[in-house]
């Protein structure tokens, strides 16, 4: 019973992390049809920036609440800068090229960003320990849960709900939906697709960086974290359906729970299980659990 509960809580926490990472990726793919390998770098930059800035903030002895706000702001700033530079400077030149070629462009950007981390923050790892201490722990029936984890799950849940609502209810969301559905139609309706692309990419980058910032207190912020994250994020969004926000939510839950179950029951298959689920979904329902299948035209 305790194991089942532990699987559920661990799974939810892991799912929250995966959703934060995956949602930006799926948003960018849905709108721009770009599978962004550099998304892993957004995550890493978010984590590094937050670890440094928030660490300094806490060391200065300032009120804790501001630390969490700073975490979000730093992530948004990182996403804004990186997103703008990459979309305006690089991606803009390859729109209309083969999907796979664009993937490779983002791979090149990823290679550059990965090594730039060493230039900016050096080879050492950072540990952002203060937020976990501030939020403390909660004892639920013998199982000790970290307050930060609970906050993370709540934050991811809120983000999912807000994102889903925003897409359906706000003017901007509907605009995005039109572009996702049919780019040419959107252009014909006078939607400025170019602006939508930039905004989407920056938003996606911010979400990626936010994922990193939010995870920074829970991990050792070190070289290579972006490399690992990107394949996980791929798995999540492929399972949910490339380009679907609701799908990323479900995909994160599926992967999170599967992995937690594996960790507690058969630790040997921890990694295996994630990609096995991804392969299985691709085989049975290649468009993902949530995306609509596109009919083949003759």
């Amino acid at each position: 019973m305790l194991t089942a509960f532990a699987i559920l809580t661990d799974g939810l926490v892991y799912a929250a992390y995966l959703f934060l990472v995956g949602v930006g990726l799926t948003l960018i793919f849905g709108v721009m049809r770009i599978l962004n390998v550099a998304h892993g770098s957004f995550y890493a930059y978010g984590a590094y920036a937050a670890a440094v800035a928030v660490g300094v903030y806490f060391d200065a002895g300032l009120p804790a609440a501001g630390g969490f706000l700073l975490m979000v702001l730093v992530a948004m700033a990182v996403g804004l800068v990186l997103g703008l530079i990459i979309e305006r400077g690089v991606l803009r030149r390859v729109y209309g090229r083969d999907e796979v070629v664009v993937v490779l462009v983002t791979y090149a950007v990823f290679l550059i960003l990965e090594d730039a981390i060493k230039l900016i923050w050096g080879p050492d790892s950072y540990a952002l320990y203060q937020p976990l201490g501030v939020t403390g722990t909660v004892d639920v029936g013998g199982l000790v849960l970290s307050g930060y984890d609970i906050g993370l799950v709540a934050f991811a849940g809120l983000l999912a709900a807000a994102g889903s609502l925003a897409l359906k209810r706000t003017r901007w969301g509907r605009l995005l939906t039109v572009v996702i559905f049919d780019r040419e139609l959107a252009a014909a309706f006078g939607i400025n697709v170019s602006v939508v692309y930039t905004a989407t990419f920056v938003l996606g980058a911010m979400l990626g960086a936010l994922g990193g910032a939010a995870m920074a207190p829970k991990i050792s912020v070190t070289l290579g974290i972006g490399v690992e994250v990107i394949v996980l994020a791929f798995a999540v969004v492929v399972i949910g359906g490339l380009g679907s926000i609701d799908g990323a939510f479900i995909g994160a839950l599926v992967v999170g729970l599967c992995r937690a179950a594996a960790v507690h029951l058969v630790p040997q298959i921890e990694l295996f299980v994630i990609y096995a689920v991804m392969a299985l979904v691709l085989v049975l329902r290649p468009q993902g659990l949530f995306a609509r299948a596109q009919p083949r035209k003759i």
Partner: peptide
Amino acid sequence: EIFFSMLSLALSMILYG
């Protein structure tokens, strides 16, 4: 296309796991 690429990626990551 991308589905082929992704499935291929998933299979290789299974072996890695």
